[in-house]
Nucleic acid binder design. Structure first.
Length: 578
RNA sequence: GCGCCUGUAGCUCAAUUGGAUAGAGCAUCAGACUACGGAUCUGAGGGUUGCAGGUUCAACUCCUGCCAGGCGCGCCA
């Protein structure tokens, strides 16, 4: 997919492929889809191809000679100014400046800065965030929400039909514990003031008691069974818990600019669980073992998977199976993607394996990320060492507000506060999204809320400076349409910015394809760096000629467009003033 | 014990999935036209990529074995 996205890369690759065909014969050259990538160093040119080395093995000829022959086999295409061979057989390509300029301008004119419509309307179901009801969202929950939401935006932008489904943990053993605890411990006043906090207190207290009091534990199990059998009182309590939690979740989602297409929690599939187990038994997949019903997965090298507990209750594997069947039937998706932390890898392997056995052919992907933890260890509601998500967002906004008050004292208070939201939340999101998913994050306030260097605010700052510059341009040169003249790329700094702009569609497609928002985050940072260097080195408003002023203003405008679009995909706002 | 993951500059992380001299940020040091916004930019120092082998034109990347850490391993999700 990626190789087709960069139009420039695709065009150059096609030319080279023909060259390899002419030199080595179509049969040999056809063994490899020639790839063109951006040059690793501007000194080498704009793009490079390393495939002469790879094909040298097949062709049994020296790579350097092949590369040289390929370069001479055909006349240069209009896109190229220069082709050179270096080292063992690197083919270095340098573009015609005018041609590069035209690509950049054309890309800028396309919708969404040239993001390819690779999805073709295919459906992707995205399962992310999925917090547990009756527990507050803490900073351990933010990764699934932010990463999932970025994947959501990426796939939508690429032309997929995305179903963002928040698979709430609204049905499970914890409700036995909470209902039993609620009856015994609830403080109605606290419940009214801060519902989820009170539910959490009840949960922790009741859970504690299960450890020392077997009768209590048994009572919790019974409450759960009653709930699962439709007991009206327990059902009413449960509904109350869910509604209170939903309200709190929605408040946080609003702060984060996250929205779902649906909230089908585990409870939604409750009446299908028995059927799933029956189906597994009929297919000879599930067996009785130690009083429970289980699926053995020895052939897959996986541990045994319990689908019905000995008390008759079902657990998450069964629920996930019912869910996937329902989603496949309803949406016929091209794929279903689950975003969770790393601890669930085995579960998803088991669940995917059983799904296959049940005849589900839909592509199922588990996108997992490293745990967020404190220096002292992992978070746990039970241990009470959590940092609430709300509190972190408050702190982020407070820090941003302090900087804004210092930098822009003339700005009205209300505007400062609104800006602080955009900047503070942007900083939090970027801090997370710019890292590889798999790395474990040890939480630190200063790291999560960094506002200089490689950070969200850096990108916002770059964007705001461009907006301000373009305003000045419009005021100083009324009637001088930036889109009128030619885009001039004579200086290396201008050239680097242009080349970066061209990489935007590639970065977007790649980030989505390999489920790595960090690819896009890093791209945006590289673009901003290239822009900042250009900005510092060359004057726009005081350039020598009107043509040059116009051209540079236009380049700025193109960068701003990409930044806006890219930040939007990361769900980070791009204010005109910061 | 078995499985998954991680180990890169003092710290936090990259490295286009096997390519050229391993790059950024923070921190440190030295600079930037009386500045198109200094939340910025330019430069310097800082590395045996955990260790030891192997594969090849080329290894942070792939294979093997160790060492260290994180997570998981039948009725929690």
């Amino acid at each position: 997919m990626t190789s087709l996205v960069g139009r420039t890369e695709a065009e150059l690759a096609q030319w080279l492929q023909a060259g390899f065909g002419a030199v080595l014969g179509e049969e040999v050259a056809g063994k490899l889809a020639v790839r063109v990538t951006p040059a690793t160093d501007p000194a080498f040119g704009d793009f490079q191809c390393n495939d002469a080395m790879a094909l040298a093995k097949v062709a049994k000829k020296p790579p350097r000679a092949i590369a040289e022959a390929v370069c001479r086999a055909q006349p240069l295409p209009p896109s190229l100014a220069k082709v050179e061979v270096a080292g063992p057989g690197f083919i270095n390509l340098t573009l015609q400046p005018a041609w590069l300029a035209r690509q950049v301008v054309e890309q800028g004119a396309r919708p969404r800065c040239g993001i390819p419509q690779a999805g073709g309307g295919k459906t992707v179901v995205l399962d992310y965030s999925s917090p547990n009801v009756a527990k507050p969202m803490h900073i351990g929950h933010i990764r699934s929400t932010i990463i999932g939401n970025t994947l959501d935006r990426l796939y939508r932008a690429l032309g997929y039909r995305v179903i963002a489904d928040n698979h709430l943990g609204d049905w499970g053993t914890q409700f036995g514990i909470i209902i039993k605890g609620f009856r015994a411990f609830v403080d109605q006043q606290k419940l009214a003031e801060s519902p989820v906090e009170e539910l959490e207190r009840i949960y922790v207290k009741s859970y504690e008691q299960t450890k020392s009091d077997p009768a209590w534990l048994d009572g919790c199990r019974q409450e759960l069974v009653k709930l699962q059998q439709g007991d009206p009182e327990n059902l009413a309590l449960w509904k109350q818990f869910v509604e209170l939690s939903r309200e709190e979740f929605n408040r946080i989602y609003q702060r984060l600019d996250v929205a779902f297409d649906r909230y089908h929690g585990e409870s939604y599939y409750n009446d299908k669980l028995a059927g799933v187990v029956r189906q597994l038994e009929e297919a000879g997949l599930a067996k009785e073992s130690e009083g429970a019903t289980v699926v053995f997965l020895e052939e897959e090298g996986l541990p045994v998977c319990i689908v019905r507990k000995k008390d008759g209750g079902f657990n998450y594997a069964t629920s996930d199976l019912a869910t996937v069947q329902s989603r496949v039937a309803e949406f016929q998706p091209d794929r279903i993607v689950y975003v969770t932390d790393e601890r669930q890898q085995d579960h998803f392997k088991q669940f995917f394996a059983i799904s296959r056995k049940l005849g589900i052919t839909t592509r199922l992907d588990h996108v997992w990320f490293g745990l967020m933890r404190l220096p002292e260890g992992t978070f746990s509601t039970r241990q009470g060492n959590v940092i609430k998500l709300d509190k972190m967002l408050d702190e982020a906004e407070a820090r941003a507000l302090a900087i804004i008050r210092e930098q822009s004292p003339e700005m009205p208070e209300a505007a400062q506060r609104e800006l602080a939201q955009a900047v503070g939340i942007g900083a939090v999101k970027y801090a997370d999204l710019s890292h590889d998913l798999r790395t474990m994050i040890v939480f630190s306030w200063d790291r999560a809320l960094a506002m200089d260097g490689n950070s969200g605010p850096y990108l916002q700052y770059a964007h705001a400076r461009i907006c301000s510059l373009l305003d000045k341009y419009a005021a100083q040169f009324p009637g001088e349409d930036i889109a009128a003249g030619e885009l001039l790329l004579n200086d290396p700094a201008e050239r680097q910015v242009a080349l970066q702009i061209l990489q935007f569609p590639v970065a977007v497609a790649r980030a989505a394809e390999i489920y790595k928002p960090s690819v896009l985050a890093e791209y945006l940072y590289a673009l901003s760096q290239a822009y900042s260097s250009f900005y510092q080195r060359l004057s726009v408003l005081k350039a020598e000629s009107m043509a040059q002023r116009r051209s540079r203003a236009r380049l700025c405008d193109l960068v701003a467009g990409v930044l806006r679009e890219g930040l939007g995909l990361l769900a980070i706002r791009a204010p005109r003033r910061i």
